[in-house]
Simulated scan of single mutants.
Amino acid sequence: MTVTQHESPTVVADDGVRLWAARSGSGDPLVLCHGGPGLWDYFEDVAGMLGDLATVVRWDQRGCGRSERCAGPWTSERFVADLDAVRRHFGLDRMALLGHSWGAQLALSHALAHPERVSSLVYVSGTGIGPDSDWFGTFRENLLARLGERPERLARWRELTGRPHLSEGEERERAVLQWSADYPDRERALEHAGRLADPWLGINTECSRALNDERRRNWGTPGLYDACTSLDVPVLIVDGERDPRPRSAVDSLERALPRVRRATLPEAGHAPWVEDPKGFREAVAAALRPRG
């Protein structure tokens, strides 16, 4: 498959909700799943980085970013169905999936539901399949420690976090401050986080709250672990060693998967393609390379 220019087709889910999508590059298909939940696709740089390796499909998840605003439903099952609608729209029998953060959970959920439709899975900066207690407390401590390196930033973040209502500008400011903790390069952390927020498309907080609540109820179960032990799909786990979310949380997923490799980038944080683009590209290229 070869695509010579960027496209922005509209994907229609099976319940009629319209989803924004874009396709670029050439080669076998790779579908990207952005994080959040409640955010939008921020993978333009990644699509450019991988465009000579794959035909890259990006999309905004239901009710988020450039996709149609709707009333949900906000469930993993619904989002898996939406991802499969993206696959069908582009006429893909099988696809490689790359998911980041919450998107890694979504991509894994799709692979578990439809393993025959997934050629490989690249699981980037996820938090594993255990309960939130495996990682959230440490993440919170690391978040506060990194923001606390600049006390005025921590104070401003706490001020904004404590307000019941924020303007659009304040919402963006709070998000950029929080996202800056994801980057170990502290001198450029605000710059990197600001790029993620440009353009600012607004966080769907209802979506975020519902899907995070669902994860807290359903993740960390023996049934999920058992399902992962039967997943006959090659998986690459990509970690930034300096991600404030403890990488040990992902050990549970690595133990469960029968066909798994892991690439840890020592100088990278939660968005490893930003701080180690060469290492990230090499890791993904290896995952996409056909095996003899």
Rank of each mutant, 00 (worst) to 15 (best):
M1S: 13
V3A: 07
T4E: 13
T4C: 10
H6I: 14
T10K: 04
A13G: 04
A13E: 04
D14S: 14
R18F: 07
A22D: 14
S24L: 14
G27I: 00
H34P: 09
G35L: 05
G35N: 02
G35W: 04
L39Q: 10
D41Y: 04
D41V: 03
F43W: 13
F43Y: 15
E44M: 05
D45R: 15
M49H: 09
L53K: 09
L53T: 05
L53A: 14
T55A: 01
V57T: 06
W59M: 02
D60Y: 04
G65E: 05
R69W: 11
C70Q: 03
A71G: 14
G72W: 04
G72E: 05
P73N: 09
T75H: 07
S76M: 15
F79L: 15
V80P: 04
D84A: 15
D84F: 09
H89A: 15
G91A: 04
D93M: 05
R94L: 02
A96K: 03
L98H: 06
L98C: 05
G99E: 06
S101R: 05
A104Y: 06
A107D: 02
A107Y: 01
H110S: 11
H110W: 14
A111S: 13
A111M: 10
L112V: 10
A113D: 11
S120F: 03
S120D: 01
Y123A: 07
V124H: 03
V124P: 02
S125K: 00
I129K: 06
D132K: 01
D134E: 09
T138S: 10
T138V: 12
T138E: 13
R140A: 12
L143Y: 09
L143P: 01
A145R: 11
A145Q: 09
R146C: 01
R146E: 07
L154W: 09
A155M: 03
P164R: 01
P164Y: 01
L166F: 02
S167Y: 01
E171K: 06
A181S: 15
R188W: 08
A189S: 15
A189R: 06
L190P: 00
E191C: 02
E191I: 05
L196F: 12
D198L: 00
W200R: 00
L201K: 04
E206Y: 06
A210T: 08
N212F: 08
E214N: 10
R217D: 14
R217Q: 15
R217A: 15
N218I: 13
G220K: 07
P222C: 08
L224T: 11
Y225I: 10
Y225T: 15
D226R: 15
D226H: 15
T229Y: 06
S230W: 02
G240C: 10
E241L: 14
R245Q: 11
P246A: 08
V250H: 10
S252Y: 08
P258H: 12
R262E: 12
R262Q: 12
A263D: 10
L265S: 04
L265I: 10
P266Q: 13
E267A: 14
E267H: 13
W273M: 11
E275Q: 11
E275C: 03
D276L: 01
R281F: 12
R281D: 08
R281E: 12
A287D: 03
L288K: 00
